[in-house]
Simulated assay, not measured.
Amino acid sequence: MLNALEVFTTVVVGVMVGVEFSVAFVVNPILGGLPEDAELLGRAHGGRMLGAVMPVWYIGSLVLVAVWAVAGWQHPGAGLVVTAGALLMVSVIMSVLLLVPINDRGKTWTPEDRPEDWKEQASRWDRYHYVRVAIIIAAFALLATALT
């Protein structure tokens, strides 16, 4: 049963990493190449769509890692799992404090009512997101290593 939990948790976190990586390095650069109004609308729609799903995914991943850490405490790799959980906790805190406030504003923007500094806010979100992606990649790597 523990083995199934380990694999399931690693897959859930890995898919989350893939989504967030693609947002950072594929989707947002594509949107950035579109005309200004299209970029704004694309970011707003993405903010609404992913803003509804990602909190559940992040918290769910953290819970799964915590359950793995407790259930596998006496097994090899437990320290890696705990460290991965700590990194996921940092990503959640970072999301709540830095990324969600920008996303909450951005998902309501339209070409008619966008703030003057919307591009600067989007760039700030992107910079924070790059850091968050690095953190969750590290967490995923630790979980994958703990499996071996």
Rank of each mutant, 00 (worst) to 15 (best):
A69D: 15
V65G: 03
E20L: 13
V56F: 15
V81H: 08
V26I: 13
P111V: 15
P76A: 06
G77C: 06
R114E: 11
I59W: 14
I136S: 04
R105W: 04
H45Q: 14
V65N: 07
M1Q: 11
E39Q: 15
R48W: 06
W57Y: 10
A144E: 01
T108Q: 11
V96I: 13
E6G: 06
R132G: 03
W73F: 15
M49L: 15
G47N: 13
L142R: 03
V53H: 07
G72S: 11
V53Y: 10
A86F: 02
E20K: 08
L97T: 08
D126W: 09
G60W: 09
L31A: 08
D113N: 15
L80A: 07
T83S: 13
L142S: 03
L98W: 05
Y128I: 03
Q121R: 07
G14A: 09
V23G: 14
L143K: 00
V19D: 08
T110S: 05
Y130E: 04
P35W: 08
T9E: 09
V63S: 04
L31R: 07
L98P: 00
E116V: 14
P111R: 03
A66N: 07
G47I: 06
R124I: 05
V81Q: 00
S95D: 13
V63D: 10
L147M: 14
V67L: 15
L80Q: 12
S22L: 13
D37G: 08
V131H: 08
L99K: 11
T9S: 05
D126A: 12
W109N: 01
A141P: 00
A38V: 13
T9P: 07
P55W: 04
G79A: 06
E120I: 06
H129G: 02
A66V: 07
A139Y: 11
T108Y: 01
V92Q: 00
V67I: 15
V15R: 04
A134E: 04
Q74H: 12
G60P: 00
F25A: 12
L62A: 13
R132C: 07
G42M: 03
L31W: 09
A139L: 05
R105S: 10
V81P: 03
V92W: 15
V53S: 12
G72R: 01
L80E: 10
N3F: 10
G85P: 05
V27D: 03
L31N: 05
L34P: 08
W57D: 08
G47H: 04
G85N: 05
L142T: 05
V67M: 13
P101L: 02
V70P: 14
I93R: 09
F25D: 03
I59Q: 08
P76R: 00
A78E: 12
P55I: 03
W68C: 06
W125R: 02
A4Q: 09
E120Y: 00
P29C: 07
N3H: 07
W125Y: 13
V100E: 10
G51Q: 12
Q121F: 02
E116P: 00
I102E: 02
S123G: 10
V90C: 12
V23C: 12
S61R: 04
A122E: 01
V15D: 08
V81W: 05
S91D: 15
